[in-house]
Computed example of a mutant assay.
Amino acid sequence: MVSMKEIAKKCNVSVATVSKALNGYSDIGEETRNYILKTASEMGYLPNSSARALKTKRTFNLGVLFVDEARSGLTHDYFNHVLESFKSTAEAKGYDITFTSGNVSGRRMTYLEHCRYRSVDGVVMACVDFTADEVQELLLSDIPAVTIDHICDGRISVVSNNIQGMEDLVTYIYKKGHRKIAYIHGDDTSVTKNRLGSFYRTLQRLGIEEPDEYVKPSFYRDADLAGERTGELLDLKDPPTCILYPDDYAALGGINEIRERGLRIPEDISVAGYDGINIAQVLEPRLTTLCQDTAAIGRIAAERLIELIEHPKTTVIEKYTVDGTLFKGASVKTVYPPRGFK
């Protein structure tokens, strides 16, 4: 095993300088640090985790609290990509990740107890019920934390710009000539509230009065219920010309219901999703959707959490908003030439 002494000899510096470079201390030059890190990597140096923990008072282990009520686990397309980006960024900075479940060898622990048991330096929280007592206990603890898609007082948050994303999506559909736009929305979360509020506000700005029966409650990633709600919309005396779904996966349920009725997309009715998962771009026709920047969300969450761990006194607690991108696809038809809107 390569030692710091060997690296110091190779770089012609002291062992203390090598130690500072490998442990992230700021009192050496950036050029020297990069040279030492590059040399250590080329020599195959691997630090002893126990020794490093003793020196730095850190375990270089980040907790991930991810509780998907739909039980889709890491097959949850959106959060899977967010967490993959978080993981790769953390690993590049020398950190490992541990999933916090509250269960260890059959023994039930609270999330906070599990984080302390695993001695995590910090935790990222995504896709959880932020009102749950266990989650609140963790949020109120002294463990550094970053939340994803939820804003908490006193905590760094990284959120997708759902307000702007919904506005972009609705405006695009309006430009395609649609005036009867329905929305099947997700369950009661801050994400849903922002999207729903932006949906109504955008329609109001465009001069469209939305019938109550055009807005239907559902759940995220529930294709069956989305299909049911689609049927209810299609059975209306005056059905919509375009239906928006809470996410691309749920949109599949709506698409199946539409096709089972012998209708064509977009010739007979238009549809649009949200998230921008891979399947949206291989459907026929390709699904119009709002692509969230999962790579940026995961990267920023990891960077800010590590910054908070390593520089707690100078890290600013704030909200980071990440914009998405409209994918026009081919599932929204131009129904007639739009008038009075450029």
Rank of each mutant, 00 (worst) to 15 (best):
K9S: 15
K10N: 08
C11A: 07
V13T: 05
V13M: 05
S14D: 09
K20M: 03
S26Y: 09
G29N: 15
Y35C: 08
Y35S: 12
L37H: 08
A40V: 03
G44T: 06
P47T: 10
N48I: 04
K57T: 02
T59Q: 15
F60M: 02
L65Y: 00
F66C: 07
D68L: 14
E69T: 12
A70F: 07
T75I: 10
D77L: 07
D77P: 01
N80M: 09
V82F: 08
L83S: 00
E84P: 03
K87I: 04
S88W: 10
A90C: 07
A90V: 00
E91N: 09
D96Q: 06
I97H: 04
F99M: 08
N103V: 10
V104I: 12
V104N: 08
G106V: 05
G106T: 02
G106Q: 03
M109D: 06
L112K: 01
R116E: 13
R118I: 07
G122P: 01
V124L: 10
C127K: 14
V128R: 10
F130V: 00
A132E: 13
A132T: 04
A132F: 06
E134T: 08
V135R: 02
V135S: 02
Q136Y: 11
E137D: 12
L138T: 02
L139C: 05
L140I: 03
D142T: 06
I148S: 05
I148V: 14
D149T: 10
H150T: 06
H150Q: 13
I151R: 15
I151D: 11
C152T: 02
R155C: 04
I156P: 04
S157W: 03
V159W: 07
S160H: 11
Q164N: 15
G165S: 12
M166C: 11
K175V: 00
H178F: 08
I181R: 02
A182Y: 05
Y183K: 05
D188M: 11
S190H: 09
S190L: 11
S198L: 10
S198P: 07
L203G: 05
G207L: 13
I208Q: 03
E210C: 15
P211Y: 13
P211A: 15
D212C: 13
E213R: 14
V215P: 00
K216Y: 12
K216N: 13
P217N: 14
S218G: 12
Y220S: 07
Y220L: 08
A223R: 11
A223F: 13
A226N: 04
L233F: 09
L234Q: 06
L234C: 12
L236N: 09
L244R: 03
L244P: 01
P246H: 10
D247V: 09
D248Y: 09
L252Y: 04
I255L: 12
I258G: 00
E260G: 14
S270T: 00
V271A: 06
A272D: 06
G273D: 05
I277G: 01
D293E: 14
A295R: 07
I297Q: 05
R299F: 03
R299M: 02
I300A: 06
A301M: 04
A302T: 01
E307A: 08
I309T: 03
E310P: 01
T314C: 05
Y320S: 04
F327P: 03
K328P: 01
A330L: 11
S331R: 08
S331D: 06
K333T: 00
T334N: 15
R339T: 07
